[in-house]
């Protein structure tokens, strides 16, 4: 199994490097989702370096915990985390979005690189996670299933079908995380189609809800995962308030960086802020 840590300094340093690599990959690809990748970094680093039982050297290990990136467009962050965790070489990140690359624009099921499900079309991932959680329960396996959703994704009706299934089936081996950065492709969610109050909605759908004021704060993410593991009889959701474009001042809370990659100049600014020479 992969070594896990709760050392916040180590996790912060990993997050910094993950950001640097995902931005370089996006810049090389000349397209991709910058804002929603950066907002998920601490959540993903917490999962792969502290929470999940997994083994990058044995990605088909039957008793591994499962992670489904339902907000598939944020996959540059996941690829970067998987590379840092040892699933594949960091150099491969530069093949992002290229023909024939294993690192496609949206994640494609490939256990060799640690991708557990094909996602990208929103409102799909939680259903697959439910299926995994039901199968694990049937098999009496003590494994946990995690799914990361975006808040924009909650506009998909299918999300709520899945949210209902999880609670009806009392899937306490399932933990959902909402990367609540409050932006979607066309702009701020409140200007497009507001879906608040998000925590109340999940609660009304039968979930145990934990809202994190700062979804980039490692201690609170880790303690929420701890709570999730101890919650019995219902599924657990972490609503993580995040900042779209987190970690680079020019991207933060800028809706226009939802679906565009950094330019040459923007990458320089970003790398400088992240303490990396361009």
């Amino acid at each position: 199994m992969h070594e896990r840590t709760k050392n916040v300094d180590i996790l912060k340093e990993i997050a910094r490097r993950v950001r640097i690599d995902l931005l370089k990959a996006l810049h090389r690809a000349k397209s991709g989702h910058t804002g929603g990748s950066l907002s998920s970094v601490e959540i993903l680093v917490s999962l792969y370096f502290s929470e999940l039982r997994h083994n990058p050297k044995n990605p088909r290990w039957g008793d591994r915990d499962r992670f489904v990136l339902s907000k598939g467009h944020g996959v540059p962050a996941l690829y970067s985390v998987l590379a840092h965790a040892g699933y594949f070489a960091r150099e491969e990140l530069m093949s992002l979005r290229k023909p024939g690359s294993r690192l496609q624009g949206h994640p494609e099921y490939d256990l060799e690189i640690g991708i557990e499900a094909t996602t990208g079309s929103l409102g799909h991932g939680l259903s697959a996670a439910n299926g995994m959680a039901l199968a694990a329960r049937m098999d009496g396996k003590d494994i946990r299933i995690y799914a990361l959703l975006s808040d924009g994704e909650l506009q998909e009706g299918a999300s709520w079908e899945a949210i209902t299934t999880s609670s009806y089936r009392k899937l306490d081996n399932l933990c959902a995380i909402v990367d609540r950065n409050r932006f979607q492709n066309d702009g701020a969610m409140k200007d497009i189609k507001d879906i608040e109050p998000v925590p109340d909605k999940w609660r009304a759908f039968g979930w145990e809800v934990e809202t994190l004021p700062d979804g980039h704060d490692f201690p609170s993410i880790l303690s929420a995962f701890e709570k999730a593991r101890q919650t019995k009889g219902k599924p657990f959701v972490i609503i993580a308030n995040t900042i779209k474009g987190k970690g680079v001042s020019i991207f933060e809370n800028q809706g226009k960086y939802h679906g565009v990659a950094p330019t040459d100049d923007e990458l320089k600014v970003a790398l400088n802020e992240l303490g990396e020479a361009a």
Binding site: G123, S127, M132, A136, M138, A158, E161, T164, T165
Partner: peptide, 28 residues
Amino acid sequence: PNRFFTMGVSEQDMMGTAAGFALSGKIP
């Protein structure tokens, strides 16, 4: 009954859940 899942009027969720079962080695 333990291998039978009524998904309600939620066909999209049913297909996604079936995918999750298949990803876990079941034949849904």
